[in-house]
Write a protein that binds this DNA or RNA. Structure first.
Lengths: 284, 284
DNA sequence: ACAATTAAAGAAAACTATTTTCAAGTTAAA
DNA sequence: TTTAACTTGAAAATAGTTTTCTTTAATTGT
């Protein structure tokens, strides 16, 4: 099924009218593309206002944004393979095929739901940050480490601790000129929530990177970024979700570098060259 | 090229301003999706009215209809593009498009060059290993950490140090029943080569994960695994190469789990549940 | 059980986006 | 040179969307 439809179907807590809308959309997805909000309102017997709100709860900018993303999502689904779960005793070629399509799907779904406005805001806020604190546990901690390494290479002051005490500690000393980024697929990791709350309390700008659905972290954060949300049961090993998170990190980082090209590219090259040089000095 | 863009490009008889619009659209197709008719009018230096007429000329109901059809057309046509480099002042949508296609390309290229015989050997040797030592510096270190976390979850004894002294230290105590995995895109990272040489000296089986070409590491290793080799100049930030490495790690890991399903899946679930449980015990 | 608070939803107002109309300028043909 | 057809943009008209305001329903605490 289409990524957006999956998200809508799996959303548990919806109000009665929202459920009516969700139901209509899942059953008439193709038709939505040709419908204005008023038509959809008439068809579902719900007010246009409620439809706008419905789109907002799913993190779309509004009805037109929702309609556009849904239709390109549906178009894409004719070509892309759907997520596949890995089961017992799969033959190796089946496994490889499944992982390949899950990863590719994860990247393209994540790309489809990007809100360019939020993305652009995130990039500029990171560029202007005095210090960037990264929070993430377990797999999301790996993603945080990855971002950390990249930021270090361009000379940005930042921190990324996998130890939850150190996360809080680093959050506790942030100021208003700093930015905190919280990474968590579910958006419900307690340690990460604590750290972000702490950072917010210190007055700094907060960014979340979670799966595409409402979550505690996305509610706290000033700027919300999302990765595609996998179908239930697809989470074994967090593989696809982590690929999607790294994909977003790459987009953020590249956006930053591209914006300050002449400042950052020399930094990047410098850091590669220095690593090489100091190795040589030790006799290689 | 996309169907709609082809039609627009091939249309011969267009008025001056229509030609301006056609030209802009073919060069900024992806951006149209996020633009209102007024924005497009401003960008092209043409009135909104003319754009509406332009859409009519091509038999669309109007601008919104055109925009929608173009964007789903583009979504559909999003098949494997070639690698793209990121240059100065790229528009955000170009950046996103480039990263998406680089990552997807990286995953599918890596999949295409898999040697199933080597892969299967690697999986079985890892399964039978008494201890698994992972070596990798910088970005490859992140990949090693990722594999480490996965192996810990299924209860496999393993190590992954990012400190090069510790890598050598851990290699120095390996035995014949152990396995060493060296990760390096270039296959020429001195610290990683040292660690793998040390492991080999201790008599344990060695696996390398490098780019697809001859390298020092791949010559040392007993089993060689490869990721796709990127075009020169594509390495800024190691983004696509790291995605490809993680892709291979996921294949290895899933292969292992699938082979010993009944032993490892409960371990995986146990590790998730215990994390949750011990959080709760602390009062959440 | 009842008041107080919170959440849900629609009507209408405000706002935004798109299309049409109209008038002016331009080109091509008679 | 005049006329007709075409192109274009400004502004009016229309259509579409979102916000605000208000009512109603549901939930919570006393």
């Amino acid at each position: 099924m289409s990524h957006i439809l999956t998200i809508i179907t799996e959303q548990k807590k919806l109000s009665p009218k929202e459920r009516v809308i969700a139901h209509y959309i899942t059953n008439n997805a193709q038709r939505i593309a040709h419908m204005s909000i008023v038509e959809l309102a008439r068809e579902t017997g719900v007010s246009a206002a409620t439809i706008t709100r419905f789109c907002r709860t799913f993190h779309f900018a509004g009805y037109p944004d929702f309609r556009m993303k849904l239709s390109s999502d549906l178009a894409q689904n004719h070509t892309a393979k759907s997520y596949q779960d890995i089961v017992e005793g799969n033959r190796l070629d089946k496994i490889v095929e499944a992982i390949e399509s899950n990863h590719i799907r994860s990247i393209s779904d994540t790309t489809r739901i990007i809100d360019f406005h939020q993305l652009s805001k995130a990039i500029h806020i990171l560029l202007d940050a005095n210090h960037i604190a990264l929070f993430g546990m377990a797999t999301s901690g790996i993603v945080a480490q990855d971002f950390f390494q990249k930021l270090v290479r361009i000379g940005k002051s930042c921190s990324a601790y996998s130890d939850s005490h150190m996360q809080i500690t680093s959050a506790a000393v942030l100021s208003e000129q700093d930015v905190a980024v919280a990474i968590s697929y579910s958006g419900e990791t307690p340690e990460t929530i604590d750290a972000l709350n702490c950072a917010k309390e210190r007055g700094c700008t907060t960014i979340s990177l979670t799966k595409f659905s409402s979550s505690t972290l996305s509610r706290i954060a000033d700027i919300t970024l999302f990765t595609s949300s996998l179908e239930e049961g697809m989470r074994r090993g967090d593989m696809a979700s982590r690929i999607a998170q790294l994909h977003m990190i790459d987009i953020l980082f590249t956006g930053m570098v591209s914006e300050r090209f002449s400042e950052y590219v020399p930094n990047l090259e410098q850091s590669y060259n220095m690593v090489k040089k100091y190795r040589k000095d030790k006799g290689r």
